[in-house]
Every structure is written in structure tokens, then in C-alpha cells.
Nucleic acid binder design. Structure first.
Lengths: 190, 190
DNA sequence: CCTAAAACTTACTACTTAGTAAGTTTTTAG
DNA sequence: CTAAAAACTTACTAAGTAGTAAGTTTTAGG
């Protein structure tokens, strides 16, 4: 069913990422991945020795994507608001797909994860928070934003609004996410 | 090890609740519960036929606790700010215990849960949101609060700040939760 | 004290899980 | 064309999962 053309390793990461966002780390198995790619269990193990390695790979790729996005946005004529909206857009897409963000997903399973993965998650979250904080600072300096909290605190507020917003909207409906999204933009605009 | 005195059913609910908050629904088993209470697997099944029944029981109790708290707070001379702080306190305790809130936990696992449980979660979340919304409205009317968003939106913002706040603070540290907590109180005070 | 219901234990089933070792096919490079 | 490395399949293990049926102990009421 799935295209077995290009890079299988990449396909496994893609499927794994989707499963984490949709069901959570502890709710999917190697069988789910192998079935989705129409191959055997052992083939997945060939590419990723264990589930820990798979999760590490997924987090690495996610972190990479973020760094990539950061570089693309930086310096290239975007306003701070546009940068923030690009960030928010990621969560809007998740809501539309009935998924939650990877960070929120692994945060819920955090106590069940091996130490090496915990460290990686810490790095990932710190990076994302710093990116948002930096954008907020830039926007304030440019006069685009007018929030009163510190940039770090405001970044935490936005992050938590979005992360839990997608979680909540799976339960109560997408309109609640929209309310949150619009409000936090207003908040930051001042 | 555990006290087998009073009501075993209640003990099972207590342990199950703790496991959900600590590890998530899909990461604990009947064995975890039976071991904690120093009994056999089948004994847990005697009280709760299946994991679905157990989760239903846990959610019922959680909902009950909230209704109880709501009644206790209502009418009894508390200011709106005090009521809000009682609500926030629940999340502060969770942070201290290295746990996340039940709603956030089941929200992450939402797509893996049976339909009957999903319905119950919807009821639970709606109730909690309404309680916060009501408190916010009351506080605004009394001149305690001065937020500009609608009470419903403001309730969503607070809810998501807290729910994701405890999740995030397990990763980045408790100080981030404190930043969020203090900021959202300032926000609502105006 | 006696009985019957409640609260268990024992002993099991059927299934799913991650993971592995050994062999086969496919791809790639010289 | 050929060799060897990469990408698999086959066939398995050991452990854990929810769940059940039948028997035993404990508890409570008349």
C-alpha cells in the first residue's frame, strides 16, 4: 500500500512521527509501522535497533526541522508577527489532523522514557522555547508586540496555550483551539 | 505493603489515578495496581471488569471530586481570586509530585480510548471549563478581575497554561511552571 | 454458630509486545 | 558479470498484556 520507493528509513520516521502525534509513544508498536509500510517487523528493527533508537531518530528529525525553519525565517525579511504565525500554523495543522504536538505527546509519557531520550527532549523543548522567545523580543524591539511579561514568560504562555490547545480541542472541538489562537495573538500584539 | 484495611475498590481507584497522572493510561497495567496493593491480578478484575471500566471509575471519581469542590466553594464567602487560586493549587501540587493532570494525560491518549470513555472525558472537561469560566465572570463582576477576553476564552487560556505548564515543567524544571502560574494570575487581575 | 455473599487466589488462555538469529533477495559498485 | 554490502524475510523467543473460570478464604448478618 505504501510507496516503497525512496528511503525506507525516512518512511519509518515519518510513520512513527505520525503515530506519536496521533496515539502517543506507548500506544504504537513496531507492527503498526511495518504494516503501514507493508513489510515485516524485523525490517523495522534493521533500521532502528529498538524503540528507543526509533524515538531518538524521530526527535532528531523534529529538532532538525525546527533548526531548518529557524534558519529559513532568520534574516529573510519576515516580520516578527509573520514568524510567530508560522509557528502557530504548525499547531493549526495538527488540530486539523486530529493530532497533538510531539512535545506534548512525549511530555505526557515523559516518566516512562529512558534517560537518553529525556535529555534529548529537554534540548528540543529548550530550543523551541528559545526560538519563540527570540521572536517575541525582536517583535517588541520593532514595536510589533506590546506584551508586559518577560519574553521568556510570554514564550512559555504561548507554548502552553498552543500545546494544550491542540490537546483540548481534540476533546471539546476545534473551535476552542481557534479561540485560543486568536486570543494569544491579540495578547502579544498588546 | 499497602494498607488492606478499608475499601479496596477505592484503593484501586487511588492507585490507578496516580499511575495515569504519573505514566499515562497506556503505560500501566493491572499488574502495577495489584503489586502496589499486594494482591493478585484477578482481584483487580473482580472490582473492575476491564481497563475501560477502571478508567471510567477513575474519571467518575475525578468528576465527583470537582463537583464536591465546586459546592464547597460556592456561596461560602470566598473571593473569586481565592477560588481561582484553589484551582491553580491543584496544578501546583501535581508539579511538585512530578505528575501531570488527568485531563492532560487522557487528552494525549484520547485517540486510543473507547467511545464511552471519550464521552465521559468530554463531560469532565466541559464541567471544569465551565467552573473556571463562572469564577472568572464572578470575579469580573465583583471588580476583582480585569481581563479583556471573554470569560470562556480566558478560561481556555488559563486551563491550557496550567495543563501544559505541568507537562512542560516535568521537562524543563519547576521554575517554568512558577513563571506561568504567576503570569496568569497577573493576567487575570488585569 | 452458621450461612451466604463478598473478596479474594490459583491457574490458566489467547494475544501482543520488543527483539533476535539465520537465511534470502535486492541493490550497488568495481 | 560479479562480489559484497544493504535491505530485507522467515521463524522464532521471552516477557508482558488483559481477561476468565473455578475454587478458597474472609466477612457480616441472622
Amino acid at each position: 500500500m505504501a510507496p516503497r520507493n525512496s528511503d525506507t528509513k525516512q518512511e519509518i520516521l515519518r510513520i512513527g512521527m505520525d503515530l506519536i502525534k496521533r496515539y502517543g509513544y506507548n500506544a504504537f508498536s513496531y507492527a503498526d509501522i511495518s504494516q503501514a509500510l507493508d513489510m515485516k517487523n524485523a525490517a523495522v528493527h534493521y533500521h532502528f535497533r529498538g524503540k528507543e533508537d526509533l524515538l531518538t531518530g524521530i526527535l532528531d528529525q523534529y529538532l532538525n526541522d525546527y533548526v531548518q525553519m529557524g534558519k529559513q525565517l532568520q534574516g529573510s525579511g519576515f516580520t516578527a508577527l509573520q514568524k510567530l504565525e508560522k509557528f502557530i500554523e504548525r499547531y493549526s495543522v495538527l488540530t486539523e489532523m486530529n493530532c497533538i504536538c510531539i512535545i506534548g505527546s512525549v511530555a505526557s509519557d515523559f516518566n516512562t522514557l529512558p534517560e537518553s531520550v529525556k535529555v534529548k527532549i529537554k534540548e528540543l523543548v529548550s530550543l523551541v522555547l528559545q526560538m519563540v522567545e527570540k521572536t517575541l523580543q525582536e517583535g517588541k524591539k520593532r514595536g510589533e508586540f506590546h506584551f508586559t511579561e518577560s519574553a521568556k514568560t510570554q514564550a512559555l504562555l504561548i507554548m502552553t496555550n498552543l500545546a494544550a490547545g491542540v490537546q483540548l480541542s481534540r476533546i471539546t472541538g476545534k473551535s476552542d483551539y481557534e479561540l485560543i489562537r486568536k486570543a494569544l495573538v491579540r495578547q502579544v500584539k498588546g
